[in-house]
Design a protein around this nucleic acid. Structure first.
Lengths: 195, 195
DNA sequence: GTCTATAATTAGATAGAC
DNA sequence: GTCTATCTAATTATAGAC
């Protein structure tokens, strides 16, 4: 017999995460209340605590999972050996991945300061591993003479900021398509390092 | 005769704005309470309302003033005519200005979503004027054949994101000095547009 | 101009009925 | 597993004493 309320552990959990992601991305972690999230999920506020110990864990799990999936996706991406081709592949991967997950990306770099100190450390370590993947490409390219940049660390930060910025303005159905955007960013990244 | 409490309208106002700027930049608008700001100023929470109608106005005034000062400073900056030299001057100005005001910059692009709809519109218009100043340089450079970029609007957003990113990692007294950083970013910006 | 006191609301989180 | 009800604490903002 159909009941209005009942067991939904298997779907309420994911729905909670989806609702939190949506609201955190749109309004910011600190500005979103557990009651708002509950309303989005369609349950009462108290019911959320069956699926998360607290609001902080909701944010932390979201950010850690995002960074781990990003690193896993990068590891799974086939990257050519030649530095220029490798950088191009990285840039394309970065733009594509970030356009696919605008909410996670936005949260991941806007809500760092709302993590507890321990959680911040964990997420920062993951973020640093990602940055190092790019820095290694740049170092190799400098060593081989393919790139001309005065400082690999600065260039790493500059390129990541430039590429991540795509999420700030890109809108599906707009003037430029995803493939075009990917092309142009990859080209700018290559030229920026003198390839 | 010295009094413990008294008239401080001339100094409490600026101190309030400075405290709010510091705390908003560090912890985020939504996460900062009026009591925290009052404690930073050294007054009681109620006293703040002598200097601002509410918390929202505190944020809005800060952001509007920042954008207006940024536009005024750009207008006052001597920019050469040649597109490449003009872009270089813009990039140097942007990096310098943003390194000089890390807190304002951080707030200006992290707290947009905490503005009321009307206030958001006002700030967005100012931001758009700044972006257009760069886009005009890029358009001129494309027209003159100095720059090779497939899309000026995308290149505008990419360059601004890249240059603004300096505030995310730069620390005074670190490995690189401000002049060096300015040089490198300007060089990357020029190369990115094929100059 | 700043204080204390407080109003009115809302927050995160928990207890216990069903 | 979800509900209602509630706890405790914090929030923005205001009123009125000094």
């Amino acid at each position: 017999m159909a009941r209005k309320t009942g067991s939904h552990a298997d779907i309420t959990g994911p729905r909670l995460r989806a609702a939190a992601r949506k609201l955190f991305a749109r309004n910011g972690f600190a500005a979103v209340s557990m009651r708002q999230i509950a309303a989005e999920v369609g349950v009462q506020a108290g019911a959320l605590y069956l699926y998360t110990p607290d609001k902080q864990a909701l944010l932390f799990d979201m950010m850690r999972e995002h960074m781990e999936e990003l690193l896993a996706a990068l590891a799974a991406e086939p990257l050519p050996d030649a530095p220029a081709r490798r950088l191009e592949a990285f840039a394309r991967f970065h733009v594509r991945y970030h356009l696919d997950r605008p909410e996670e990306v936005f949260i991941a770099y806007m809500e760092l300061r709302n993590l507890s100190p321990e959680n911040f450390e964990t997420v920062e370590r993951l973020r640093h591993r990602y940055e190092e993947a790019l820095e290694r490409i740049l170092r190799d390219g400098v060593a081989s003479g393919d790139f001309r940049i005065p400082d690999t660390r600065l260039a790493t930060m500059a390129l990541i900021a430039m590429l991540t910025g795509v999420t700030q303005w890109f809108r599906a159905g707009g003037r430029l398509g995803r493939a075009e955007v990917e092309d142009i960013y990859a080209g700018m990244a290559l030229r920026a390092v003198g390839a």
